[in-house]
Design a protein around this nucleic acid. Structure first.
Lengths: 153, 153
DNA sequence: TATTGTTATACTCTATAACTATA
DNA sequence: TATAGTTATAGAGTATAACAATA
């Protein structure tokens, strides 16, 4: 007989709740992201990766614009940028047109690091979607976007 | 012409990444959960709801068993239980069989509150799944479980 | 007046390490 | 020795409020 501590708990209606299943999937995916980077001797969060991509694709954008795109407060962004800047991946330049804002950009080292990070993310994505066909993955993304639209309404 | 600040940013490959789409859907769903409870004059997080359901369906379980089921450290659980106990929803009773453990349970007020919370969660679930057919919702849950299994492997 | 970035502050979630009581 | 719960501590993510510089 199994030890009492190994007993599986009754989760009631939780497994039928979209919010619950979504949260657990997200948690496992986050853990795999972290493990992927750790194994490669790198340290990056999914949020930091998204931030770096946004700065790379929209060089010169302001902190306010970036905070809005990330859906966080401008004060929340400050320590995050400080950390990435301290790692030499990102710089705050003076805006030539608006003395209040900073023009954000990746450093050459940041560009290079992002290319490596993108490869790790691709491997991570391949792994978490390994149980799904290409059609299923597209369908999943489509359904998740529908849910997001409804939740934001 | 739109103001520069209203410009839509280039997100590069992010919208094609399952992890990215999952994270954004989860964030929007969390916000809707919070809004649903706020509008009803209640305050509860998805995690607290899941915890209350687990204690309700597995009365007498220990903190370690609960922490394991939630996937968090036992030290992380302590302040969460303190808060729910301070709200009068949950109690730590002495275990009759093991002096080291607490037997967790809901109070009568906790049982009553959980019934109300479950109704709010049902309304929330209905809203976030409103853009999906019943078949699509089931499919979405199935695909998310597959992703979770792969990410944990 | 309004906006941008920063700082101070606070709260939650998360973990590790060390302590106490019990098994 | 090992386990359960607690505490101390620390780091990251989140926010609000207030301030200085600039528009």
């Amino acid at each position: 007989m199994a030890r009492p501590s190994a007993k599986v708990l009754d989760r009631g209606m939780l497994p039928s709740l979209l919010g619950y299943v979504l949260r657990r999937a997200q948690s496992a995916v986050f853990a795999d992201f972290d493990a992927t980077f750790s194994r490669a001797g790198e340290a990056l969060t999914p949020g930091e990766f998204g931030l770096l991509v946004l700065v790379d694709r929209n060089a010169g954008l302001s902190q306010m614009a970036l905070a809005r795109a990330l859906g966080i407060d401008r004060s929340t962004l400050v320590p995050i940028l400080n950390r990435l800047q301290a790692r030499g991946l990102l710089v705050r330049r003076d805006s030539p047109t608006d003395g209040r804002t900073h023009a954000l950009g990746l450093t050459p080292a940041g560009e290079k690091a992002l290319m490596k990070f993108a490869k790790l993310v691709a491997a991570h994505e391949k792994r978490i979607a390994a149980g799904l066909s290409a059609t299923e993955t597209r369908k999943l993304i489509e359904l998740l976007e529908k849910v997001r639209d409804r939740a934001r309404a």
